[in-house]
Design a protein around this nucleic acid. Structure first.
Length: 306
DNA sequence: GAGCCTCGAGATCT
DNA sequence: CTCGAGGCTC
């Protein structure tokens, strides 16, 4: 390990190409290339710097690089991810330096090291307890936050949300194959490969297992859709609808929590009657006393008061 | 007309 | 980065 302290904050950010980087980043990049006569090396760990194809960013190729380790820890504890209060840039570096933490999952085992934490600079009883409490609370974060916290390349907040929504558990995401991933809108080959590569890494699997062992929640509870306006309401449509097609109407009903069926039963809440309605559905609705509504009424229920 | 490429717009990630 | 449009090949 090298002196982590001063270098890390600069390197943690990926180094950009001249035309887009900040002045600070320019000079850093300059230094890197000068020192190595055109063969770029990470100023922190000396490993080769790689540039992803067609991309503007340079990355250190060494996953164990102290700067990367620190960067991952900071992403993990950040507001948008696990939202652990009391650990920022300063504390991350300190915890790593003192070898109290080697990867983010170690945070959940810090409660057994209270004495060591108290010895750290500027860490009194109050700060330590607040920190430990915040770590415990973070075990219940949403799956989207957990996925973001893992630091998978090309997976930011938006992508993490989409993946969480689609898989509902980290295990299912980890088991997904390329085909399944690419089928998700906004997921293309690059992101699919990146995700598969991430879960293929031995180290990453180990860290996830550590999170599991520490009882960090790695799934979302089955969504309670009780709040949706049409939950529990069953719709049957007969006849033609004008403003939008039957498919679209049914899709909107489902989007609001309702269900759609082809035949009227005792469970049917509404028969939507369009133009030229089918006789069988209509008469059955009459027999059962099913509530009949026209298209305008349906639009109103869908919240489209046009 | 299926398969493959490039290109640009628009969204996202770092 | 993704994705669709438009051009090319076979």
């Amino acid at each position: 390990m090298q002196r982590a302290g001063e270098v890390i904050p600069e390197i943690v950010k990926p180094i950009k190409e001249r035309r887009t980087g900040t002045e600070k980043e320019f000079s850093l990049l300059e230094k890197v290339f000068d020192k190595n006569k055109g063969r770029p090396a990470c100023p922190v760990c000396g490993a080769e710097i790689v540039k992803s194809e067609g991309e503007v960013m340079y990355y250190c190729s060494n996953a164990a690089c102290p700067a990367q380790v620190a960067g991952r820890l900071q992403l993990f504890v950040s507001r948008g991810a696990m939202d652990i209060r009391g650990i920022g840039e300063r504390q991350s570096v300190m915890l790593l330096k003192e070898d109290l933490v080697r990867d983010p999952a170690d945070l959940y085992y810090l409660k057994d090291k209270r004495a060591e934490l108290l010895k750290l600079e500027k860490m009194g009883e109050k700060s330590v307890d607040n920190m430990l409490e915040s770590i415990e609370k973070s075990k219940e974060r949403s799956l989207a936050r957990v996925i973001l916290a893992l630091g998978i390349r090309h997976v930011g907040g938006e992508m993490a949300g989409i993946l969480a929504e689609h898989f509902n558990s980290l295990d299912r995401l980890a088991a997904a194959n390329r085909e399944e991933l690419v089928d998700i809108p906004t997921v293309g080959p690059k992101i699919a490969e990146s995700i598969i590569a991430f879960f293929g890494e031995e180290q990453n699997r180990k860290n996830i297992q550590k999170l599991k062992d520490a009882d960090v929640k790695l799934e979302d509870e089955i969504k309670e859709q009780e709040e949706l306006p049409l939950t529990g309401q069953e719709f049957v449509i007969t006849g033609k609808l004008e403003p939008f097609s039957r498919e679209k109407a049914e899709a909107e009903v489902r989007a609001l929590g309702g269900t759609t069926k082809d035949n009227v039963t005792r469970n049917t809440s509404y028969l939507v009657v369009g133009a030229d309605p089918g006789g069988s559905k209509l008469s059955r609705a009459q027999t059962l006393g099913t509530k009949q509504i026209d298209e305008q009424e349906l639009l109103r229920l869908l919240g489209r008061n046009k």
